[in-house]
Nucleic acid binder design. Structure first.
Lengths: 330, 330
DNA sequence: AGTCAAAATGACAGCGCTGTCAATATTTGA
DNA sequence: TCAAATATTGACAGCGCTGTCATTTTGACT
């Protein structure tokens, strides 16, 4: 089966190769009738473009890399799914890579070997200062999902962390809780700070004494939630609800509370933040806040492709809606 | 910064482009001193090969696709990691794709658009008869991880399911359990059948009455483990241990048992099979059987690359060792 | 030294496409 | 109506590499 090339199309349509190329690449300055004729011929010949040739001639790779340093495979796979979705129609490949520290060195080695047209960075890698500076210097297009720092240096997908945390806290308050503990993530993580902010706003709005609502910090791992409950919260019997800044820590709290024989949610309500797979894998199922990770990834990847195509930089952040998934733990 | 090409190397080394190409591609029939000189010059010029050009000229894509239909992101990410590992040194890309049903149609559409040199299929996709036939017909090199059917049609990575299940069962028996229930996976899944086999072998070897040890079937999901315990096992007080054919179902059992107020492991021992991330995320941590998924993927990918490079087909299965991770639930 | 096969090397076309720039067609405006 | 401006199209080189096949070198054996 002979490969069909644009020169075959050109011959059959009675135009030049370049015109065929223009049509296929949606370039401007082609008459409508020409476009239609070429498209029809291409279709009749069952033409499939050759990426390598395109890539060689145009010096683009048609590869988008997704880099992460997140051991949460569920989160990563949702990001990847969205990125794929965006790339499929544009004819781009996505390769997903778990980057190892030191990030910018690994990145540098990677980019020496493979050529990529753009990068999708997901949190917390999206906040690695060295890596960001490196990418900026090398002038490699990148976008970020839920970065916590340096807003404005790239296009990014966000959720309203503060607002969402406030709504979640309000839910707890409405249920009558007055002693609510919050477990936040790493202190340098802006998203976590924003969630604390929303938590405290809700408390203030309801006239609840912040001193009754201690804040602890974990590291976003299941273990840190488990340990925080065990070491710090278990003995404080007046605390009737715990809000963890992500699902993994919330699950850790659930597990630790279960171990202490606590009745969930009657004696202790627990809520998380993420809408992760894990949140409904466990029993009791976790009440959490759903983030549309896959949609965020798709949109941000689309904007990356747009930037690559047009060369125009538009760093307007994309904000996404979240909603509470109310389940067993409150 | 001008791109360094093989013709630059050729000029500086005083040889022809073709000789440089031979050296760079490890082709035979190059004198040792020539090889060394070329390599030295390439290094001094900091030469980086151009994939597109190579690909265009050689009609290879240097892309390996990993296809799966597994919603278990943890498992998939471990496979991907291994595949990456194998491809990195060979200069291949890996793209990972969740294939949607009907598989062979999606596959066909995918291969019409993208060109790939080979495929890594992970279970249960590795057992889709239509897809396999399609790949065989199109003569696309592929390898499989833990296939349950049609051994011999491709190179594959295996573990000794029966032997491993036997060892795990023996552990339970040695701890004094005489009423052990087994939850298997989908009946057409050979790995699951082999695990049942091993379970029953151990029972027989210990002279335990199989009728005291009922077998139920789930679908490898957390929910099916949860439901099986709740609907079928909970009321059988004599059952003192449950062996689930994978971690997800075992976790479901743990969760359901927790919900029933059962004391684990004193009143009920539970063991899984996989060594998944999930197994140690929950409390109590699950005793499980570790499978070296990532290593399996790496080895099998290596053999795929070998087949692509040499054209030689060697479908000798690769068998891997497993070991029991003993934790809280038994 | 001479012969011949095998090993090593090189010349060169061309993979399929796009960028550049020149050529031609069409529209605009006076 | 005609020149100038603009839109559309085409010719062709060449992206960096490998496959093919011809040529040269080497080594083994008379």
């Amino acid at each position: 089966m002979k490969t069909v090339t644009i020169s075959d199309i050109a011959a059959k349509a009675g135009v030049s190769m370049k015109t065929v190329s223009r049509v296929l690449n949606r370039e401007p300055n082609v008459r409508e009738e020409m476009r239609e004729k070429v498209l029809a011929v291409a279709d009749s010949l069952n033409y499939k473009p050759n990426f390598s040739a395109r890539s060689l001639a145009s010096k683009k790779s048609f590869v988008i890399a997704h880099w992460h340093n997140n051991s949460n495979a569920d989160y990563t796979s949702r990001v990847l799914e969205g990125a794929h979705q965006a790339c499929r129609s544009a004819g781009y490949f996505v390769v997903s890579e778990q980057l190892s520290a030191p990030y910018y060195e690994t990145a540098s080695a990677y980019l020496d070997t493979y050529s990529v047209d753009g990068l999708v960075l997901s949190a917390p890698l999206a906040d690695d200062a060295d890596l960001l500076q490196f990418l900026l210097e090398r002038n490699i297009p990148f976008v970020r999902i839920s970065p916590g720092t340096q807003p404005g240096i790239s296009c990014a997908a966000y959720i309203d962390n503060s607002g969402a945390a406030k709504r979640m806290t309000q839910l707890l308050i409405d249920a009558g809780h007055k002693h609510i503990s919050f477990i936040c993530g790493p202190p340098n993580h802006m998203a976590s700070q924003q969630r604390i902010q929303g938590f405290q706003n809700a408390l203030k709005g309801a006239g609840i004494n912040c001193e009754d609502c201690p804040i602890y910090s974990g590291d976003f791992s299941v273990k840190s939630g488990f340990d925080t409950y065990t070491n710090a919260i278990a003995k404080q019997k007046q605390i009737s609800a715990i809000f963890a800044a992500n699902d993994a820590m919330a699950v850790g709290v659930v597990m630790a509370a279960l171990k202490h024989g606590v009745n969930i949610p009657d004696d202790l309500a627990i809520v998380g933040f993420d809408g992760s797979q894990l949140s409904h894998t466990i029993w009791p199922q976790l009440t959490t806040l759903y983030q549309p990770v896959s949609e965020m990834a798709e949109a941000i990847t689309q904007s990356l492709l747009e930037r690559i195509r047009t060369g125009k930089i538009d760093n307007t952040p994309l904000e996404f809606e979240t909603y509470i998934l109310r389940r067993d733990t409150m």
